[in-house]
Nucleic acid binder design. Sequence first.
DNA 1: AATCCGTCTATTTTT
DNA 2: TAGACGGATT
Length: 710
Amino acid sequence: MSLLENLNPEQLAAVTLPNQSALILAGAGSGKTRVLTTRIAWLIQTGNIGPNGLLAVTFTNKAAREMLTRISAMLPINVRGMWVGTFHGLCNRMLRAHHRDAGLPQLFQILDSQDQHAAVKRMLKAANADEDRFPPREVQNFINAAKEEGRRPRDVEIADESSRRFADLYAAYEEQCQREGAVDFAELLLRTYELLSKNEVLREHYRSRFRHILVDEFQDTNRLQYRWLKLLAGPANVVFAVGDDDQSIYRFRGANVGNMAEFERDFHVQNVIRLEQNYRSFGHILDAANALIAHNKRRLGKNLWTSSGKGEPVRVHEAGSDNEEARWLVEEIQSLAREGLRLADIAMLYRSNAQSRVIEHALFSAGMPYRVYGGLRFFERLEIKHALAYLRLLANPDDDGAFLRVANFPARGIGARTLEQLQDAAKSGGMSLYKAAGALAGKAGAAIAAFLRIVESLRSETQGLPLKEAVEVMLERSGLVAHYRSEKDGADRVENLLELVNAAAAYIQEEDANDLAAFLAHAALESGDNQAAEGADALQLMTVHSAKGLEFQAVFVTGLEEGLFPHEQSVFEDDGLEEERRLMYVAITRARARLYLSFAQTRMLHGQTRYNVASRFLDEIPAGGLKWLTPRLRGSSPMEDVAWAAPKRVPQPAVPDHGFRIGQSVLHPKFGQGVIVNAEGSGIDARLQINFGRQGMKWLALEYAKLQPA
DNA sequence: AATCCGTCTATTTTT
DNA sequence: TAGACGGATT
């Protein structure tokens, strides 16, 4: 059986597990995707189920695509039509199929986070809510949190006046969405959950159809997603959950690692299979990762190993400043490139996006090509949003969000007053803006009427046209392209709009349904690439979060400073530090052959210089596997026989009379090593503010503190 | 309706 | 430092 060739014993056991639910603890680089896809192929090949008898769920569209590609490489079957997708994608599919049962219009629109934000703002305005007490962002978070707990407005706990108001606003938001036929991300999940929960026939239909349910990145599921799975699975179905609790880094978004333990209990898991053999990194890198993560208390437990030898030590570099760190990075990368490493095989990771600036600056000055991941994605761009809004109005005239977005864009003399007037009319008539617009008279009415004519003629002209041509007509008729052509910096936007035509042409809908609605759902569910074009050999820059799931020949983890990584905000959060450590674990395990850890003594943050202590994570990695590229003040390691880099240059302020200066490292008998961050007073009366990293920030009187220069 | 200016704020972000 | 936002100005 060629399918099962070259699987290690644990992988093999997982793939061929008999019909009972199982939890696969798959460490980084342990062949998780391979196990998942081979399992599917094996189930089908052995006649256990047909391609349509299983459902596989992932978190990203990319992962879903990858899975389908691999399956079709393993089996001579048509994978189109298989239920492999993201939670949201699969829910969308169910809701489209059963929109009536779910209480939704056939062409319901999906709101992405941006759209939702706008919708909440609109609702708050209509409800006359005090913007200071109810900021849109907070209300949005409240609503999403409630939905992810499976709570409707009536289920929200009301403790005080404020929570009562929040619940009311939530209700108003729901009403608005329902009226407009709009569904946000969390709603896709909750609606489907409620649909299955209330409708026994449907529930049984899907339960008997999907005998096998497979879940990827299980540690990232939130409470609602877990309940959804539990509901869909029922007692007789087999759930194959793959995850790694050590790589749970999205708790702040509602991911609940606790689902893993709960899953074991709820599904009577007999088999927890650990995939611990790592096929990605060399020994020293894995040792570092293992040692680090061992500092976490709550773990299911796992130790990665490799048969490929220790490899190179983990290199550590200390820089005087963020700028110096960046310059060193460039030099080091240049030497890696000279050794023949492709730039695209090198990643620079950082904890927060703001850190990329300094690095980018240095790379730019050195003329080194790089690519930054993150930022605006294709379908999130303003001009694309505008274009989509026109399309949305065609699909669903009651979409007030779309109406407001483009009624006066490009400008056609519809002012804020007109729109307000219109909103009032719509509200009192209990109808959508579009419907109310027809009745508006007077001068304002004329402008509005012109807009309606545009939409109506668009509608009739695109009737029956293939999607691609419909988009072309829309771009033309709406005046969007013309508008951006006439704008001085509009060239990129025009290009993007034309790219939208390509996207429409390339879009192949999965089954049945309305082209346009399906394309709009696609646009909302898959916001597109957020990385520059492939092809050119360029260095990869990204946050540690977005590096999850990727691997590189060489990895630089930068900015390893207390307060930055671990982030200072994290210490206030329950379990925050452990999550930061998991994040560091993810960072380390991205590297195949070479891993660099770097930090800087000073860093410009929020417009002022901060003096930092090295991250505690550096101390949590055994010194034996580390090779310091810069001199260290204390401690030693066997590998410290390296040529030391140029002496550190810290910008030095004038030395005050007491002999201590800002930025200086000092040693305190109780608090250990710290860095002077601030000082006031002079002579014997001076007080120094010292950052002791883990011990915190302290103000010490020089007279009493027994400080010595370190 | 577009632009300018002061104020505020500042992790991470699969869908 | 830099961007986002709201209010005021042209």
